[in-house]
Computed example of a mutant assay.
Amino acid sequence: MRLFVIGADPRREWAFSTWLRAGLSVTLADGVSAGGFEHAVDRFHPVEVRDEKADVESLARMALGHDGVTTLAEGSLITAATVARELGLPGPGVGAARIARSKISQRWAGQRHGLTGPRHSAVTGPDDLVRFFAAGVQAAVLKPPDASASAAVFAVHNVEEALDRWPRVRAISPSRTGIVEEYLPGAEASVEAVVRGGELAFSSLTRKQTGGPTGFLEVAHTTDQAERPDAAVSALVRDLIAAWQIESAILHVEVKLDDGRPVLLEGTVRPAGDYITELVSAVHGRDLYLDQAHLALGQPLAADHPPPARRAEVRFLLASGIVRRNVAPVEVLAGLPDVKIVRQLAAAGCRLPPLTANWARAGYALGWSTDDGESLTGQLRTAVTDLGKLMGTPESA
C-alpha cells in the first residue's frame, strides 16, 4: 500500500518508523518543514505544502497511484484533505480541515451546535480589543487563530496589556489576525480520538501541565491507564465530531476540566504532537500513527497491542541563554530506570530563542512505569534538570 504524506512537522519520527514497520511505501511532499524526514521515506518531493501557498492540482498529480493521503503538519490540513477529496480517498473532510485551521471558525462551529466555550472575539485590529475589554472582562487570553505550538499565546488582564501584546500575536498569524477569549480556570487535558466514518472508535485522556514565561508553554503531559474520558468528555467529543462533520481522522481535542464539566478549548484533525501519541501507545497499546495510516488507506483499524506501562509522561526543559555543550543521553540516564529517552533540542553554540512558543523548549525526557507514578515524575524531573545543567543553561526552569 502506498501512502502520500503532505507535510510533516518536526519530531514525527515515530510516525515514519511505524509506517516502515507496517510495510507501507511512503512518499513525502514537503519543502517547508525542518523535520528532516527525507531519508525515512521511499520518495520525496521538495515542494510548497502550506495551505495558503500550496499548488493543490500539482500535489494531486503527484499523489496519483497512491492508496491514501494524509498529513503530519498543522499548516497542511486543508491541502491534504483537498487532495484526498480530489482523488476520492478517505480523509477528515475539507470542511472539517478548514474549521481545524482557525480557532475563530472552531468557536463559530461550536456555537452553532451548542458546544460550551469561553466568551471570545475575533481581532483584526486594536478597536476589537478595546470593545472586548469594555464589556467587563477581567482576565483573557490573546493568541493567533491559525498558529500551533502555543506560539504567541498571552495572558492579558486589561486592554493596555492586550494592545501591547497585539503586534506580536499579529506577526505570528498567517492571516494577520487574532482571537481574544475569556480565561477559564481549571485543569487542562487533551483527548486523543480515532474517528472513522463520523463515529468515535477510540479515545484516551492526557493531563497537561503548562507554565513558562507566558504561562501557556506545555511543560509536561501525563497519560494514565486508569484515567479515560468520562461520559461528559466523551459526549463533548462526539458533539464536536458532529459539529465539524469529521469523516475519518485522528482527532486531538484540548479541554478545560472544571469540577468535572468539560469546556472545549480547541482541536485539530491530526495526531497530537509533543510525544502524546507515544504516551498513548505505551499506556493503551494503541498506535495512533498506525490508525492514521489505516484511516487514510481505508483499511480496518489494527487491534490494540499489550501496553508496557500503567503510566507514561513526557517533561520538557525550559531554558535560556547559550547552549554550552552537547549532552549524550548516557550522561543523564544512569540511575533513572523509568526514563526511556532524554534528548536536547538545541545544539552547542546556539542561543536559545525567547520562550514564547513550544518550539523554543531546549530538551525533553520521556518515560513510563508499571507502578508508581510519583517515582516516574520524580525521575523525569531529575532528568530534565540534569540535562539543563549539563547543557550549561543554569537558568532552566
Rank of each mutant, 00 (worst) to 15 (best):
residue 287 D to K: 02
residue 276 I to G: 03
residue 261 R to K: 13
residue 268 T to H: 10
residue 259 D to G: 09
residue 293 A to G: 04
residue 289 Y to M: 04
residue 283 V to E: 05
residue 268 T to K: 08
residue 268 T to Y: 09
residue 283 V to D: 00
residue 281 S to I: 04
residue 265 L to Q: 14
residue 278 E to N: 10
residue 267 G to V: 02
residue 280 V to F: 08
residue 255 V to H: 14
residue 277 T to H: 06
residue 290 L to M: 03
residue 290 L to E: 07
residue 258 D to M: 14
residue 281 S to F: 15
residue 258 D to A: 14
residue 269 V to T: 12
residue 263 V to Y: 00
residue 287 D to Y: 08
residue 272 A to T: 12
residue 266 E to A: 07
residue 282 A to M: 13
residue 255 V to F: 06
residue 277 T to V: 15
residue 273 G to A: 14
residue 266 E to C: 05
residue 275 Y to H: 14
residue 266 E to M: 11
residue 256 K to H: 15
residue 286 R to E: 06
residue 275 Y to Q: 13
residue 293 A to M: 01
residue 284 H to C: 01
residue 283 V to Q: 02
residue 295 L to R: 03
residue 260 G to W: 10
residue 287 D to C: 06
residue 275 Y to P: 00
residue 287 D to A: 05
residue 285 G to C: 05
residue 269 V to I: 09
residue 279 L to A: 03
residue 261 R to M: 11
residue 276 I to D: 02
residue 261 R to S: 12
residue 261 R to H: 13
residue 287 D to G: 04
residue 265 L to Y: 13
residue 294 H to W: 02
residue 277 T to P: 10
residue 261 R to E: 13
residue 286 R to S: 04
residue 262 P to H: 05
residue 281 S to Y: 15
residue 296 A to Q: 03
residue 274 D to W: 03
residue 273 G to I: 15
residue 269 V to C: 06
residue 287 D to E: 10
residue 276 I to V: 13
residue 259 D to E: 11
residue 291 D to R: 02
residue 271 P to K: 07
residue 294 H to S: 08
residue 271 P to D: 05
residue 257 L to W: 14
residue 276 I to Q: 00
residue 265 L to E: 13
residue 294 H to G: 01
residue 276 I to W: 01
residue 261 R to L: 11
residue 272 A to D: 05
residue 273 G to L: 15
residue 293 A to P: 02
residue 267 G to P: 05
residue 263 V to W: 07
residue 291 D to K: 04
residue 274 D to L: 11
residue 282 A to S: 14
residue 283 V to I: 11
residue 285 G to A: 06
residue 266 E to T: 08
residue 289 Y to C: 04
residue 255 V to G: 06
residue 256 K to G: 01
residue 292 Q to D: 09
residue 261 R to Q: 12
residue 279 L to Q: 00
residue 292 Q to R: 04
residue 294 H to A: 11
residue 293 A to T: 00
